[in-house]
Nucleic acid binder design. Structure first.
Lengths: 228, 228
DNA sequence: TATAAGTTTGACCAAATGGTCAAATGACGT
DNA sequence: ACGTCATTTGACCATTTGGTCAAACTTATA
């Protein structure tokens, strides 16, 4: 995973090796450490999602996690490292969802599974999803390597599938990238614009039933829109 | 327009009256003022788009505009007011694009016109579009009134059109809101994720021809996906 | 050209920022 | 019980932040 990350200045990062997150731990206290890192990551996710990387402050994150700021810096040496750890979690989830594209040889099934997984991801991890979107909007300073390697390869491979489906007369002659951009945008929307949706829903967030209806409609629209 | 805006603390804003932007101007020098405000807004758009509201600094904006920071504060009393002015520009453009939905009684034509207009907006004003998305992602602290009033009304009215089209058998039985979320997300994507798209395009931004192809495919997918 | 207003700008400020440090505290194996 | 090392934390720091101010400078007009 770490190979996807580089520090914002492009130079070597103290996190280039996973171990480096913790200060040379010979006898780490796993329970304490795990709980503190969890609380800090959860707080960081909230603050980064609300304020963006630049607007978030380590003081606000520490306050929300209920620890002194110095303790935050004990577990995550810099704000950058903490942010990186948060982004890393989303990346893992992103890759898991991506795998669901490959469960079927039928484009309708593959697309439905993938769109459904991405919708569920946006629903289950709205804060992390928003951070992911914000990271991409800002030009992906933290995940450029992921874009250049894993994502490029993933898209290229799926483009091949799409071309095969087109040749088999199962899909219209579409550009696979445009299709993926549409899927990514539409599914992310359910995390990014949750507040806007709530406003247009009479001030209440989408309940589970409404979300499931939306998921079905999104799947149906895209699938029907691209199948021949 | 000003009725859409409220200050971040919800209290009265010095910008609630348009005139208040400038310090009691009896004999403003229009040429100088217009040029300075233009340069500052352009610089602000770049910096806000790159860094987000929280990450942007007035010093960086002033530097990019080529004026001393104190001069920035002469034209825009606070960072908040400058941000508000930037958002106001996008709102105007958003409303103009929205109008293109109403040019036809046929859903295929109305949707094609609206999606095309939103695509063109994302292409023509990518920075402003990104700021708009970021604003919505952050819970719309600046445009809540717009969401509550104009947008709510706009969506409600178009939902009526959609229902009529469904009853006439021209559209599948869809939820109009879900359709609009999809349109907003997909079109915004061409501003928000321009960098990601460039990476997947071999490092080069989409050229005009590729963009026009994408526009056609987006329109075709959505229209074919929702028409009966 | 005097004047009154609009404009420009360097110097300044209090508060907040990310980060450091050393001393104190706690837990665990022996 | 003790030594060791992980953990905790208040105090501290240099820098940056948004914003202010008063003095200087411009320009239209009487």
């Amino acid at each position: 995973m770490d190979q996807f990350f580089r520090s914002r200045d492009g130079g070597a990062s103290p996190l280039d090796s996973a171990r480096a997150v913790r200060p040379a731990a010979r006898k780490a206290r796993p329970a304490i450490r795990a709980e503190n890192e969890r609380a800090l990551l959860e707080a960081a996710e909230q603050v980064f999602a609300e304020e963006g990387f630049g607007g978030a402050t380590t003081a606000a994150i520490a306050r929300r996690a209920g620890v002194p700021k110095a303790n935050l810096h004990y577990y995550f040496v810099t704000k950058d490292a903490l942010y990186r750890a948060v982004v890393e979690r989303v990346l893992t989830a992103w890759l898991a969802a991506a795998a669901s594209f490959d469960g079927s040889d039928d484009p309708r099934e593959a697309l439905a599974a993938y769109i459904g997984a991405k919708m569920d991801l946006a629903r289950a991890m709205p804060l992390a999803s928003r951070i992911w979107s914000a990271e991409i909007m800002r030009g992906a300073p933290m995940i450029q390597d992921f874009l250049d390697t894993t994502l490029t390869d993933w898209v290229a491979a799926r483009e091949t599938s799409v071309r095969r489906w087109i040749a088999a007369g199962k899909l219209k002659p579409i550009d696979a990238k445009v299709l993926f951009y549409m899927i990514w945008a539409t599914t992310q929307q359910y995390a990014n614009a949750a507040h806007e949706m709530a406003t247009l829903n009479g001030g209440r967030p989408l309940d589970d039933a409404a979300f499931e209806r939306a998921k079905r409609q999104v799947i149906a629209t895209i699938v029907d829109g691209v199948t021949a």
